[in-house]
Every structure is written in structure tokens, then in C-alpha cells.
Design a protein around this nucleic acid. Sequence first.
DNA 1: ATATTTCGTGCAATATCGTGAAGAGTCAAG
DNA 2: CTTGACTCTTCACGATATTGCACGAAATAT
Lengths: 250, 250
Amino acid sequence: MLTTQRRALISARLARDGEIVAKRMADELNLSEDTIRRDLREMAAEGLLKRVHGGALPLAPPLPNFAARQEIAGDVKWRLGRKAAAMIEAGQTIFLDGGTSNAEIARALPREMPITVITHSPTIAAELERHEAEVILIGGRLYKHSMVATGAATIAAIAGVRVDLFFLGVTAIHPAHGVSTGDFEEAAVKRAILGQAAEIYVLATAEKFGAVSPHRVAGIADLTGFIVPEETGAETLAPYEDADIAIVRA
Amino acid sequence: MLTTQRRALISARLARDGEIVAKRMADELNLSEDTIRRDLREMAAEGLLKRVHGGALPLAPPLPNFAARQEIAGDVKWRLGRKAAAMIEAGQTIFLDGGTSNAEIARALPREMPITVITHSPTIAAELERHEAEVILIGGRLYKHSMVATGAATIAAIAGVRVDLFFLGVTAIHPAHGVSTGDFEEAAVKRAILGQAAEIYVLATAEKFGAVSPHRVAGIADLTGFIVPEETGAETLAPYEDADIAIVRA
DNA sequence: ATATTTCGTGCAATATCGTGAAGAGTCAAG
DNA sequence: CTTGACTCTTCACGATATTGCACGAAATAT
């Protein structure tokens, strides 16, 4: 990435998000924080932004949607996505399930990390247009409610891949009933993917705990771990910690 | 390689990728960086690009990628999309190729029409989220420049379907050389789809006529027809009308 | 009050730049 | 056919830019 482009990206981010966090930006671009801080310093000297401790702010007030972005639950999923993306190492192959949470992972993936991403969701694939990752699209009949491919062709295609990490999306997590989802076909596809993955993580926002959906995907013990929001209470998680799975906080 | 050709290539790359990295370009052409740098310097002096440390950037608001092309696509493609959509009848199965033109067809499809849409483009599939159509997604390795699946898995999946109508996207249309595109794998996939389609139409904006791209997809006689903008001149189309194909105006 | 994070600076390693000189090829006049 | 002017390319080299790391200082968090 050329220096000029990096600065342009910083400007764009600043306009869109209303802030730059030096550390995040460094992570995302796989550069040292020094480089980013230097950019911010020099751009501040040129009067392009306002330097603050930890990052930078725009000179002009940010776009209106920023306030909304901060407040809504989107922020929680965004943090979960960041955390999940941070667990991925260069060279790995990962499977991204459908859903908004996993779309956040796709957005949070460092752009220049050499990885392979497999997905059966056209929406997720579309998110990865500008990433360097090799993307493998799994086909099948499109189930529009979740925007993922399902059916026999999908199951068959999944049988042909192996992945290091699977980020599973579900609608419900229960200590006794395991993780479950609302569609029969979709559950079958998720189970097929489970069989091909070395590690399985579930992105879990608080409201999913204790819920049960019609179609079971897996038991708690079949998972490697959960990724939960920082503020998820101990009472909520207590029943799951016995299952000897990792709980990663974001 | 002639200097003129090299410069043309640089311009093309810049338009497509949105950046030139001097070292990469030198490697690719087996030339010294000096030569490339000199080109960049002089092209910058002529006002053709913006020289930056490490390479060059386009002058104009950049944007090579699919999303941007989609935005500037504009009115002509919208009208072609409308016309193409009007040719589809209830109950039919159609295959939508990738590309901005076909994305317009997807947008123009009547929402409640009972049809089956097959596509190997996640972007097109995403467009159809709110449509009633049954959508079959063809998987494979994602070729990001065009945002379509390619490769052996794609070809195999295509072999399992039959369609009434195929809307083929190409970058060039020539009376003698037929229709062609820029990527080898992509061309192979398009040929595979051709074999499964009863009728084949090409959405053709004026600038494609008379052009030739590296990888041939089909001859003019293999097509059922073109869909062209209303204002496309008779001189442009004359060489193609002999081939006894339908030319549908939008 | 103490621990942690972030900052700025200096420095060394590397990458890229521009310039000038040398080598290779082209072409036309002699 | 040869010579010389011209162009294009590569190489050499000193100058400049960029990046990552180390370290003490400042800011922030606990």
C-alpha cells in the first residue's frame, strides 16, 4: 500500500466514522503504530485533522450517522467482529457462516492478510471484494431469509473443503439444548460445516443465551468457544463455563 | 515492447486497479524500475497521472473497483437492464452472468414474477435478496475483479443446470473475433454456461462494438441476439446484422 | 498512587528517487 | 556498408523517504 493511499484512507475513515484509533488502523493495515502515528502527526500539521491522544478526530463535525452508529447495537457486533478477526492468523483457512455478525468479521479482516475465506453467503462474499483473501464461494439454493446457500449441492460442496476456523452463526444458545437455529435446511448446512472444521467459535450477543430455536445445530461441548461482548454478565455465562470451552471477551 | 504500448498498459492498469506500484510493474514487464519510473515521471508531466512515492495514482477520483463502476454505470445500463428484464417470462429459468449490466437486470426484475435465477456472482445474488425468484448460487473460487466464481468447481456446478435464457456479459464484441473478455478463467466459465442455455443475449453498450479482448467466448453466430441502447448507430451494428441475430433495442 | 497505554524522538535498515554515464538498437545521410 | 545522430534502456551512486524499534516522557486508566 502506497503512503498516499494510506493517508487517503485515513481521511476517508475519518469522514465516515468520525474518528481514527491509531492502534486499530495499524492492525487493520498490518503496519506498526509508529507509521500510523506519524501519518496522523503530519496530517495534523497540514491541517487535515485534529490529533488527539489515541488517534485523531475530524476538524469538521462528523456526518450525522455517526451518533447513531455509536449508540445502536451495531457497535456490539462490530466489537465482536474485531475480536473474531483478531483470532485469525496468516495462512489459515476460515469458514464464515452467514448473518450480520459474520459480515462484521469480514469487514474487520485485515485487508492484506494472506488467508483463505470460505463462505456460502453471497453477502459475505460481496463484503470481501476488496480484501486480499482468497475467497471460495459455496453454491446451492439461496435461502433468502439468511442469505446463505442451502440444500444438497451446498452440503456436497462443503464436503470438499477443510478449514482451521469456523465462525458459526446461530439464533439461540442453551446449556442443555446446545446451539440452534430457525431453519431446518440451514441447520443441516451448519452441521455439515462443523464436521469440516478444526475449531468452532460462536459469536454470541447476550440475548441469545438461554434461548432455544427449533433446529439444533450442535451441543455446547462441540464448540471450541464463544466470543461475547465485554459486558456480558457472569450469571449469563456461568452455565456454559463448565463445558470447558473458551469464552473470548471483546 | 514498445514505449507506446507500455504507457498504454500503465494507463489501463491505473484505470483498472487504481494504482501503479513501480516495482511490481517493472517485475511484471521484465524491465528495470528506471524505465517504469521514467514513464511515470513523464506521464505525470503530461498530466495523465499523479506521481507518488512508490508508484502512481489516477488523477481523477480513482476507482477501479466493482462498487464504483456500478455507481457510474448510469442511465444507459439501467435502460438495457429494463429491456432485458422485459424479455423474461414467468416460469422461466435464467442465468445471469456477472458484471454491472447484469446487476441492472437483477434490479429490474419484476419482484413477484415466479422465475428461477441462476448466477455465479455473489453481487448479483445479493441484489436478489428481496425478490421472489428462486435463486441458485453457483460456487467456486471468487475472481474479485469481476466478482464471479470461476474454476473447476464452477464449471462442474454449471454442468448440472439448464436455462432458458442466458444474459452474457463480455467486454468486447467484434464481427470476426466474436465476443471476448479479459480473463482466461472467466471466459471458460462463460463458455460452459453457453452450452447449457437455449437462448443467449449480450447486453452491449456502444463502446464494446469493434473491440477485441484476449479471451474469446463465442462467435457472433452462437448468440441469439444483442440488447443495445436505442441510440446505437446503424453503422456500428451493420456488420453484426448479417449474422442473423436479433438486435433488441432499449 | 500505581500500572498501562500512548506519545515523540532519535536511530538504523531498507526502499525509492533522480541524475548522469554507458551500452544497445535504429535510421538515414554519406 | 559505414558513420554518426538519436532514442531507449540499464547500471551506478549519492540523496531522500519510509518504516520499525528502542527509550524516556506524558497521558490515561485502575
